[in-house]
C-alpha cells in the first residue's frame, strides 16, 4: 500500500509539466482574443496574446512567476519523491531535532525570490495603478458604474471631456462600452451599491469597484472587436448576469457610433435624427450662473 501513496505523490511533477505543455493548445490558458469580429468562441481559434499592451506585460509577469513556481514545484516534488522512496524502504521511524542551517537556507531563498518578484513587477504595477505612469495620451472615455446587476455607463457628449459630475449633455448606456481601437482609453470606475469587479479578461484587466470611490482604469484595444466585460467579485444572487461587452472600433467609426448614440438620446419621437451632424445643443445651455 505504501508504494501506491509514494507513487501518487511522485506523479505530480510529471503531471504539472504535462498540463503546462498541453494547456495553451487546448485553450485552457489565457482568455483568447478574437482573430476577427465577432468574437470567435471556438477554443484554440483565437490568439491567446492579449489585445492590451499592458496585458502583454502582465502575461510576461505571469510567465516569469509560472517558471519560478514551476521549477520550485518540480524540485520540491522530486525531493519529496526521493525522500518518500527512501523512507518507504525503511520500516523503523527515526527522530531528529532539526537543522538550523537548513532552516536559514529555506527562508533566505524564498525571501530572495519574493524580493526579485516584488521589484521585477513594480514597473508594470505602476503603469496600471500610478497616474503619473499612465500613457501620456490616455483619454478618459466614460464613467462606468457597477450596480446590482449591470454596468451603467456615462459618456461625455462627443467632443467634450469627461467630468466628475453628470453634465446636461452626457450620454448614457448600459452594459455596452464603446471605445476607439488603437489608443489608450481610461474609464472612471464607480459602484452604486456593493463591491463589484470590472474585469476585461482579454485585456487582463481586473479592478474592484468600491462604493464611494472613483477609480481610474486604463486599457487599450490594439485591434477592433467585441470583448467580454465581466463582474468578477461575487456581488449577489445576480452576479452571473453582470456581463457586458466592450466594443472597440476604429476611431472614425467610434465617433460615428457616439454621434448616433447622442442623436438617439435626444430623441423627441418626432425628429428621429440619426445623422452625424445633428445638433445636440438643445439641453447644453443651462450654465452654472443659476447657482
Amino acid at each position: 500500500m505504501k508504494w501506491v501513496w509514494v507513487s501518487l505523490f511522485a506523479i505530480w511533477p510529471v503531471a504539472a509539466i504535462a498540463l503546462s505543455a498541453v494547456s495553451p493548445s487546448m485553450g485552457w490558458w489565457f482568455p483568447e482574443s478574437p482573430v476577427t469580429e465577432p468574437a470567435v468562441a471556438e477554443p484554440g481559434a483565437g490568439s491567446s496574446e492579449s489585445v492590451n499592451p499592458l496585458g502583454r506585460e502582465i502575461d510576461h509577469l505571469f510567465y516569469v512567476i509560472l517558471v519560478i513556481c514551476g521549477v520550485v514545484f518540480v524540485l520540491t516534488h522530486v525531493g519529496l519523491a526521493w525522500v518518500l522512496f527512501g523512507g518507504a524502504r525503511r520500516t523503523v521511524a527515526r527522530y531528529f531535532h532539526g537543522n538550523h542551517v537548513l532552516e536559514v537556507v529555506w527562508t533566505l531563498i524564498p525571501a530572495a525570490v519574493l524580493f526579485f518578484i516584488a521589484f521585477y513587477q513594480m514597473e508594470v504595477w505602476a503603469k496600471f495603478r500610478v497616474e503619473s505612469y499612465y500613457p501620456a495620451d490616455v483619454t478618459p472615455v466614460a464613467e462606468v458604474t457597477g450596480r446590482m446587476y449591470e454596468w451603467r455607463i456615462r459618456y461625455p457628449a462627443p467632443g467634450k471631456t469627461l467630468m466628475d459630475t453628470p453634465q446636461p449633455d452626457d450620454l448614457y448606456a448600459v452594459n455596452e462600452l464603446l471605445i476607439p481601437a488603437g489608443e489608450p482609453v481610461l474609464i472612471q470606475l464607480r459602484s452604486q451599491d456593493v463591491q463589484h469587479s470590472f474585469s476585461l479578461p482579454e485585456f487582463r484587466i481586473k479592478q474592484d469597484a468600491l462604493p464611494g470611490q472613483r477609480i481610474p482604469v486604463w486599457f487599450q484595444a490594439d485591434q477592433a472587436g467585441n470583448y467580454t466585460l465581466l463582474c468578477q467579485e461575487l456581488c449577489g444572487w445576480g452576479h452571473y448576469k453582470m456581463g457586458g461587452v466592450v466594443i472597440a472600433t476604429p476611431p472614425d467609426e467610434h465617433a460615428a457610433a457616439m454621434a448616433a448614440l447622442a442623436a438617439k438620446q435626444q430623441s423627441d419621437g418626432v425628429n428621429q435624427t440619426d445623422d452625424e451632424e445633428s445638433e445636440i445643443a438643445s439641453t447644453t445651455a443651462v450654465t452654472g450662473e443659476r447657482n
Binding site: 419621437g269 418626432v270 438643445s282 447644453t284 445651455a285 443659476r290
Partner: peptide, 21 residues
C-alpha cells in the same frame, strides 16, 4: 402608433431655454 408628440421638442439655448425651464 406609439404616443408621439405633434410638436417636435423646440431646440432652445441660452435665455430661451432658461425661460422654458
Amino acid at each position: 402608433p406609439p404616443v408621439t408628440p405633434n410638436e417636435p421638442r423646440p431646440v432652445l439655448t441660452g435665455d430661451e431655454l432658461a425661460a422654458s425651464i
